[in-house]
């Protein structure tokens, strides 16, 4: 998924650097090897050096956390700040999560001292803005965890940003 997102940049870098390497090889064989090596480094290093795991260009999750389910329950919630650093509005949908059977986006509303919760399809984030998944507001609802999960484990949440797949990492923590 990361590779497919960066594919255009990889192709552009290869197209720009290959003719340069050919040109230099006519002057100096060692120089050609150096340039070809540099080109290869740029091509293959791209996916490794771009953005840390748990984020994608344009959307990052900060302080992403999922509470381990409380004994007696197989359901829990996840929170964090989704930061859209791109220049366009994005719509984020949550598709699935590793280590749990399913994930949904829900919204809690408080009216006249009564709490009610409902599923929402997506969350919209304006350009250069952020959306907070917080207790008592929009949040991830997660169902049926794998056995043996412990605090500190990472859960990879598969989402889409304007239709493009991404993975966001949330840390499992104990609810105190």
């Amino acid at each position: 998924m990361s590779l497919s997102f960066r594919q255009p940049f990889v192709v552009i870098r290869a197209v720009l650097l290959a003719p340069l390497a050919n040109l230099l090889s006519t002057l100096n064989a060692h120089g050609a090897v150096f340039i070809a090596g540099l080109a290869a480094l740029l091509v293959f290093a791209g996916p490794l050096s771009g953005v840390a795991e748990g984020s994608e260009p344009g959307l990052q999750v900060m302080d992403g956390k999922i509470y381990l389910p409380i004994p007696g329950s197989q359901i829990t919630a996840g929170y964090g700040t989704l930061k859209n650093s791109s220049a366009q509005a994005v719509e984020v949908k949550f598709e699935k999560v590793e280590k749990f059977r399913a994930v949904e986006l829900h919204q809690t509303r408080e009216e006249n001292g009564v709490a009610r919760m409902q599923k929402i399809p997506s969350i919209a984030i304006a350009p250069q803005s952020e959306a907070v998944l917080r207790p008592g507001g929009a949040h991830l609802m997660l169902f049926t965890p794998e056995k043996g999960l412990k605090a500190g484990d990472l859960a990879r949440v598969h989402a889409t940003v304007n239709g493009k797949s991404i993975i966001l990492e949330f840390k499992l923590i104990t609810r105190d």
């Binding site: 509470y67 919630a77 829900h106 919760m117 609810r175 105190d176």
Partner: peptide
């Protein structure tokens, strides 16, 4: 209720704290 993932554990945590 126990399967309330958001508000109930939040309030119970606040009581605990």
């Amino acid at each position: 209720y126990v399967n309330c993932p958001d508000v109930c554990p939040l309030r119970m945590s606040r009581i605990s704290q």
